[in-house]
Design a binder for these strands. Structure first.
Length: 686
DNA sequence: CTTAGGG
DNA sequence: CCCTAAG
């Protein structure tokens, strides 16, 4: 797996230069922006990879540690990079100059590591570091930057452990952690060496950066064309200071633990060209995000960090900065979504391709044969024996602003993975590059005989279709060991490519929980195999095969059960302070400028949209009008309610009179108001 | 995207 | 809070 940084075309984005926002009317909207086309990327690649690695690791023997030092392929696989480039479809628009239009994305690509053959069950247990995998190269880099990265890994461990359990006994958490840590060390060392090494390879050069982060996230291909930005990028990569969120007078730095992530999902300034679709996509995505299926993901609290980092920045700047990534991501999702909407199947370029694996350095060693590492054992009793070293995992795209903290990045990744896992994963069987759909066929019938070269046999993790009715998804909470209490349904996960999932018709029709799916996929398809997947040959060998079928467009009946995926956002009653801020803002801005109100008083409260504010105002007015006995929830000070009434009355008239505001009106409002004081602010702004 | 309103 | 029509 590779953690690379994908920059937008022209890479001009992250650091959105501060551009004072012009009056709305003058604001130019719909500026086309460049959008990385990750629509084709399959987010589940990572997932699969992780799981695969896990499985693989669990089977790897002591060779594990050795392998990590010697055979481990460089994190930055050329092949992967190349493929990556291919994935990057042309931007829909060319506006690389548009500030803030780009965002960085970190993507994971699987680089199958195929070491070994000697497996010691015992060691396997200990080494079952699913993470070594996905996390290894990627996280280790981060680790260098942020030691506590491990915590994230641990979460992953748990999750994976859980999953690994499906194929084979999952190592005890302890073991996981230990081996994870151990591997991290080794691998990092190794990788670092490799990166800094003289290796005349472009890769080596490109990655011989000092900053680990940069090291990890830069993609050679991209770096070349954006070398000029590199330095700045580096600088920005790690926020240096943290300013109080309350820096701005009237702004409230509401906490937003549950929906911090929203920051990364929410879209704000989007290309006009995408507007319609985006909205839809966003909505859908949000629905997905709010889906209860993601509840198991851990909470994220990075918002505060990023928020504080931007605290000093001008209002608009901040806003833009905060959302550039979101938009970016959204755009990506949009694309993915678009394809789906079109009734197409979107799959990672390498979704079922063996290329990424083939291109891996190790591949070269093994002869670049995807299945070279898989072992086929023909037993006397005509059993097909083989080991699966890893699953092909859909790519997972993650985008975070440069200003995001490493911690937030970690959390993002963690959450993404967790969520994906929580969403359910299934295993698909590919034979000769073709997906074997008929679960009832015997291996023999399918052609998977003991005589067959298992190189032709491949497995791929398939996301449990989110489009499927909830019932078929199973309860994620049971999948993940998320100890998190109630977590916000708004996780970015889906955004990370869930929509990118390869929707297979058959998947959509399947029912039953993940576990069942799992069994169906494996058991029924290869009941013989099942017997051998366990104990000593738990490892899953990545035998990715180009699956034309998978890449083909397949109609998706996703619209159907969509509604069932929708879940309301978590309710977040307004606190008195929030109400006060709202009232204050409305008094000054009126009731028809919610966006401004939001910006003015809730800039940092990402979970409060202007619509929310508008709605709140609506209820406040109502509340103010009803008797105190009828009011519910946290009592709002009468004083505030009076102001609400006054402001409401005032602005109602003001609006009606069309800019006719004057002293006379103020007086009128004053009269209407039961509380003359409430008019003060109004008068001030007149 | 924002507003404005109904649900 | 959600959803949408409108702008």
């Amino acid at each position: 797996m590779v953690l690379k940084k994908r920059l937008d075309y022209g890479f001009n984005g992250f650091r959105v230069p501060f551009v004072p926002r012009a009056p709305r009317s003058a604001r130019r909207r719909g500026i086309s922006r460049t959008v990385a086309e990750d629509g084709q990327a399959c987010a589940f690649e990572l997932l699969a990879s992780l799981a695969g690695k896990l499985l693989q690791e669990s089977a790897s023997s002591s060779a594990s540690s050795n392998a990590s030092e010697g055979n481990h392929q460089p994190a930055f696989d050329k092949g992967v990079v190349e493929q990556e480039r291919q994935d990057e479809v042309k931007p829909l628009e060319t506006d690389s100059i548009n500030p803030g239009s780009s965002a960085e994305s970190i993507l994971f690509s699987e680089v199958a590591s195929q070491n070994t053959s000697q497996k010691s069950l015992v060691q396997a247990e200990a080494d079952a570091v699913l993470e070594r995998t996905s996390v290894n190269n990627n996280f280790e880099c981060l680790e260098k930057v942020e030691p506590d990265l491990k915590s994230s890994v641990c979460k992953l461990e748990d999750t994976f452990g859980h999953y690994s359990g499906r194929l084979a006994p999952a190592p005890a958490p302890q073991d996981f952690r230990e081996s994870v840590n151990g591997n991290m060390k080794n691998e990092f060392r190794q990788q670092e060496a490799g990166n800094l090494g003289i290796g005349g390879s472009t890769l080596a050069k490109n990655y011989s950066l000092k900053d680990p982060l940069e090291l990890c996230v830069s993609s050679p291909a991209l770096v070349d064309s954006t070398s000029n930005v590199k330095s700045s990028l580096l600088r920005e990569a790690i926020p240096t200071k943290s300013i109080s969120r309350h820096g701005n007078d009237s702004k409230l730095g509401f906490r937003d633990d549950d929906e911090n992530f929203l920051r990364f999902n929410k879209l704000s300034t989007k290309s006009k060209a995408f507007r319609p679709t985006q909205q839809i996509a966003h909505r859908r995505i949000r629905k997905l995000l709010t889906s209860k299926y993601w509840k198991t993901a851990p909470k994220l609290k990075d918002c505060e960090l990023s928020r504080s980092d931007m605290g000093v920045k001008p209002l608009y700047h901040k806003r833009k900065t905060c959302h550039s990534f979101e938009r970016y991501q959204h755009d990506s999702n949009l694309k993915k979504r678009k394809l789906l909407d079109r009734g197409s199947v979107v799959t990672s370029d390498g979704g079922f391709s063996s290329e990424s694996v083939c291109n891996s350095p190790e591949k070269g060693k093994d002869g670049c044969n995807p299945g070279s590492s898989s072992e086929l054992h023909v037993s006397k009793d005509s059993h097909v024996k083989f080991s699966i070293k890893s699953f092909k995992i859909p790519e997972l795209y993650i985008e975070v602003p440069e200003t995001a903290t490493v911690g937030s990045l970690k959390r993002t990744i963690t959450e993404s993975v967790m969520a994906i896992l929580g969403g359910g994963v299934r295993v698909g069987v590919l034979f000769h590059g073709k997906k074997v759909r008929d679960d009832n066929r015997t291996l023999l019938q399918t052609g998977i005989s003991c005589k067959e070269n298992l190189d032709n046999l491949g497995f791929a993790l398939e996301p449990s279709s989110l489009q499927v009715s909830p019932i078929s998804v199973g309860d994620p909470s049971s999948q993940c060991e998320s100890s998190q209490a109630t977590r916000s349904p708004r996780t970015p996960v889906p955004d990370l490519g869930v929509s990118n999932v390869l929707h297979e018709t058959s998947l959509l029709t399947n029912t039953g929980n993940i576990v069942e799916h799992y069994h169906e996929s494996i058991s029924s398809q290869t009941d013989t195999i099942v017997d051998y997947i366990t104990p000593d040959s738990r490892a899953i060998v990545a035998v990715p095969t180009r699956n034309a079928e998978a890449l083909a467009m397949v109609p998706v009946a996703q619209k159907a059960r969509r509604s069932e995926l929708v879940q309301r956002r978590t309710r977040r009653p307004f606190s008195v302070s929030e109400v006060e801020a709202l009232v204050q803002a409305v008094e000054e801005l009126g009731t028809g400028r919610w966006r401004d109100v939001k910006l003015r008083a809730f800039e940092n409260a990402d979970h409060r949209t202007y619509v929310d504010l508008k709605d709140k105002w609506k209820t406040l007015v109502h509340t103010a009008r009803i008797s105190p006995q009828q009011r519910r929830g946290e009592p709002v000070p009468q004083e505030l309610l009076d102001r609400v009434l006054a402001a409401h009355a005032y602005w109602s008239q003001h609006q009606a009179k069309q800019q006719a505001g004057n002293l006379k009106m103020i007086r009128e409002a004053s009269v209407e108001s039961q509380n003359a004081e409430a008019i003060q602010p109004l008068a001030m702004i007149m």
